[in-house]
Design a protein around this nucleic acid. Structure first.
Length: 478
RNA sequence: CGGGGUGUAGCGCAGACGGCCAGCGCGCCGCGUUUGGGACGCGGAGGUCGGCGGUUCAAGUCCGCCCACCCCGACCA
């Protein structure tokens, strides 16, 4: 880690990722296998993600609450598919306060069960519906293989849990939340995700239907960046979540759940990062603008710092950091803030003081091309416009990269070739779990999603040749 | 859980056949000179060599067992 340069992406992508996460001080390995410490810089990014999502949740009528970390083992067992899906990865507490527990507690891997239990107590009438609750918290899943942010034993997320009177309402809620995730990913994180439906074999354990937003990382692997599930009446029946309708008939509720986790930080890193380091989207970046003062002598310092303070004052609408450390050179600071992905850097030196200018360097365009000199007058407007431009450019670049790597092979041989070269395949697909498994065995690619946006018309399934009306994306995934 | 790899200073590493005060680079601390793309000089601090046991006059070094972590596969947000 003492080498100045990161391992280039092209040389070893996962090495690049691991070094970057640690050197940018996003996260570090904890003393427990598979666990991470989210460092202040990484957590600050997460807080901005939280704020962007939370405001969208609130705007659509959701409220926050907190449910317990521990769940009675028996709760999980009430929903057959759910317990089968999660049993292998549970952390179980058998001793508390020094003595064996009568019933083991699991550390929540997700909270459908305990929230379902509570909903059955709270919901009695159609007048109580819908219930629209979200929780910000942490969960534990005992994974075999872990990566910082992408898959850790413990991770942070939000999980929304709603209960509705009708199937239609539940489906509408599920899709609404998928839309919110899609909007967040594109417009806040500049991550061009593809919203779609999961196949039967890829869906959440206990769901009727699962939806996902799929993103393409810099190595072209797919990442499930958020999910929204229509749980039908599965959990309502398992936990007796019932209400009396207008005609005094007892009905089971229809429930949903949806989540987005700190994995999304990994998505941001791997969507935008380059060989210099992180590239953070302006709307989420913990620091949007870093100001680096440059001077030699004391009299220069006074003049420069006065200009720096004045400019900083103008930029009060932004998240600004003045790097006034004396012990490192400006060149070192440039590299360091580029590693940390700050979208915009301002340099102010004696020449700028003389010219009433500042040097602007945008992170999304490395090197001299991304550098320009602008007047100090009107700097707030200049910065605002530049941040907007950077945000838009990042989405544009990521979208171009994604689209350039999505292919439409016409037969299975061509399909295999695309996957072998790590591309994504967008193909006609006739749902069939066995064929899907065969493709996975042949190519290691999985069905990422059946996109919401469908071209219409009919075609022949890439694998079976049967006529079908839907297209799907296949790719290797994280 | 299968395969591979690594544990020596905060980080990255070197330590042929066992041998005396365990080294190097980066980082860190002090002083001085520097500062528009990863500065330099001088002087410092910092080590149960992953753990336990064994062989030996003598063990980072040889042997055994254990532990941890990383990478690659099967499962997952």
């Amino acid at each position: 880690m003492d080498e100045k340069k990161l391992t280039p992406k092209a040389e070893n992508y996962s090495e690049w990722y691991n070094q970057l996460v640690q050197r940018a001080e996003m996260a570090d390995y904890a003393p427990v296998r598979g666990c991470m410490v989210v460092r202040p810089y990484g957590w600050s990014l997460w807080e901005n993600i939280q704020a962007a999502l939370d405001s969208r949740f609130k705007a659509t009528g959701h409220v926050n609450a907190a449910f317990p970390l521990f769940i009675p083992m028996s709760f999980l067992e009430k929903e057959k598919e759910h317990v089968e899906g999660f049993s292998p990865e549970l952390a179980v507490v058998t001793i508390g306060g020094g003595s064996e527990l009568e019933e083991p507690l699991i550390v929540r891997p997700t909270s459908e069960t305990i929230i379902g239990y509570m909903y059955s107590k709270w919901i009695q009438s159609y007048r109580d519906l819908p219930v629209l609750i979200n929780q910000w918290g942490n969960v534990v899943r005992w994974e075999m293989r872990t990566r910082l942010f992408l898959r850790t034993l413990e991770f942070y997320w939000q999980e929304g849990h709603t209960a509705h009177a009708t199937a239609e309402e539940a489906e509408a809620e599920t899709l609404q939340m998928l839309d919110i995730y899609t909007d967040f990913a594109r417009n806040e994180a500049a991550v061009p995700v593809i919203p779609g439906r999961k196949s039967e074999s890829e869906k959440f354990a206990g769901a009727v239907r699962s939806y996902t937003i799929e993103a393409m990382m810099g190595d072209k692997k797919a990442l499930q960046a958020g999910t929204s599930h229509n749980l039908g009446q599965n959990f309502a029946k398992a936990f007796d979540i019932q209400y009396l309708d207008e005609t005094n008939t007892l009905q089971h509720c229809w429930t949903t759940s949806w989540g987005l986790s700190t994995r999304f930080i990994g998505a941001i890193i791997m969507t935008h990062g380059d060989d210099q380091g992180l590239v953070l989207p302006p709307r989420l970046a913990p620091i949007q603008v870093v100001i680096v003062p440059i001077f030699r002598k004391d009299e220069e310092k006074d003049l420069v710092m006065a200009a720096v303070e004045r400019v900083k004052g103008e930029l009060s609408a932004f998240r600004v950091k003045v790097d006034d450390r004396m012990e490192v050179t400006p060149g070192f600071k440039f590299n360091e803030w580029e590693l940390r992905g700050v979208p915009l850097r301002l340099e102010i030196g004696p020449k700028d003081v003389a010219n009433n200018s500042v040097a602007l360097a945008r992170r999304d365009i490395p090197g001299r091309e991304g550098k320009s000199f602008v007047p100090q007058d009107g700097i707030a407007d200049t910065v605002a416009a530049m941040l907007t431009t950077i945000q838009a450019n990042m989405l544009e670049k990521a979208t171009q990269f994604r689209d350039a790597n999505i292919h439409e092979p016409q037969d299975y041989e061509a399909f295999k070739q695309v996957i072998a070269e790590d591309g994504w395949c967008y193909v006609w697909w006739k749902a069939n779990a066995e064929n899907e498994a065969q493709i996975k065995e042949d190519t290691k690619a999985t069905l990422r999603c059946i996109p919401i946006d469908q071209p219409g018309g009919k075609g022949r399934c890439i694998f079976s040749g049967e006529e079908t009306t839907e297209k799907a994306y296949f790719a290797k995934a994280y």
